[in-house]
Design a protein around this nucleic acid. Sequence first.
DNA 1: TAGTGGTCTAGACCACTTC
DNA 2: AAGTGGTCTAGACCACTAA
Lengths: 241, 241
Amino acid sequence: MAKVLYLTVVEDIKKKIMDGLIKPDDMLKSESELMKEYSVSRMTLRKSLSLLSNEGYIYSVPGKGNFVRKPETDIFQFRFSDYDSLDCETDEIKLISVRVEEPDPETRFSLGMKYGEQIVILERLSFCGHKPVAFEIVISPYIPNRPVVEDKLNFANYSKALESRLAFSIRKELEITLIKAPGNIEKRLEISPGEVVFQINKKIIKKESNQTLTISKFYIKKEFYSIKAGTPEEDDSKKIF
Amino acid sequence: MAKVLYLTVVEDIKKKIMDGLIKPDDMLKSESELMKEYSVSRMTLRKSLSLLSNEGYIYSVPGKGNFVRKPETDIFQFRFSDYDSLDCETDEIKLISVRVEEPDPETRFSLGMKYGEQIVILERLSFCGHKPVAFEIVISPYIPNRPVVEDKLNFANYSKALESRLAFSIRKELEITLIKAPGNIEKRLEISPGEVVFQINKKIIKKESNQTLTISKFYIKKEFYSIKAGTPEEDDSKKIF
DNA sequence: TAGTGGTCTAGACCACTTC
DNA sequence: AAGTGGTCTAGACCACTAA
């Protein structure tokens, strides 16, 4: 199949694992044995083992050997972005307000801010078929001298721009719950009292310092959100070796 | 910091990317230039590039060069397993029924089965605080001569065992929606008419053939499910190089 | 044709585990 | 002391891209 040596080795070992010839926590043959078995050099063999390791098939213990990994199949992946996550065609996103104010103590704490520092609050309403379906609140520390409140529209893209510049040093967390809509959300989304909505809390966190940079809260009408998730794919396009 | 050559290279290039010295789709210096810059051999440098590639920082185009990748930060991961995904302590899982029957046409189609072949249906109810919170239906093709209907409890673990044997050759898909509970679910979960529940459809699919092996449907009381998800972590423990 | 990345080899030295 | 995996080198040949 594969004309490349290290890939034929990978495929053969994968097959042996999938056929149950070697089971989780079994030790593979030693690298020197495998070199002979496949007639490849050490580096080539180790490239194969590296691939298998990256794909979760094996792990290695220095001084001992390489072992078959217990597979992990309960992890799922999905995509969530601020704009295209609704189960409908968004025909308008209305900017409700952008303002700078004093944070309440809880927010100040989550954002790791000092007393006296202010926050920017952005509120946005998304429409499908000319009806409101999602309300979004974005909270970030206010850093003076940025084109924020002065130009509302700029700010709408500001956080995206900022984010893409920081992209490699941030991590995001999501919390999806179903809650009874608070009064103001009921009004914004024009739903009946007591009705439930999806609440999605998003945090953008700086990897190194674990500092929270931005907090977002989405409230989505229950009919307009669902999740499709799947086992992570091995993205071979990303690999060099 | 790192005493290993290839890691110091990785860290330095990461830093340059995060500091914005090289931006998405910019080309890195050629490998021979980088070899000189860091005074390392070709293979060592390429190990570094491989790592950067695996972690999503760069990609490479043969004959041209290595480029900085546009970062992806809208992908989230979470865990879902049949047993520990409820927002409460499960104190009982009651096996409601296990039976073999003729599939309806839709199910037969999804499972890629021939006319005349039968399916096994398992139904299970989970309790928290002695109240029903989740109802689960698992549907698989019936393969005669397996300890299935003959021993209900065995079957409960059967699918897990089967799955772990196949683990490396399967993939799973999840679909999470909020629906009005069907009549039988209302009864099972003891909820009021018209109330919404989470519906989670799970498919287990064979990677090679794309054949669906098992379909599961979970119905969970809306108060007892939520999702915590986050940006995938680079799992260095899995790496050999 | 010259430069780029992709594959592969044969050796070397190290730290760690096992006996 | 012998065997294991982890790091590193210097060179080789190839396919691809660009001028």
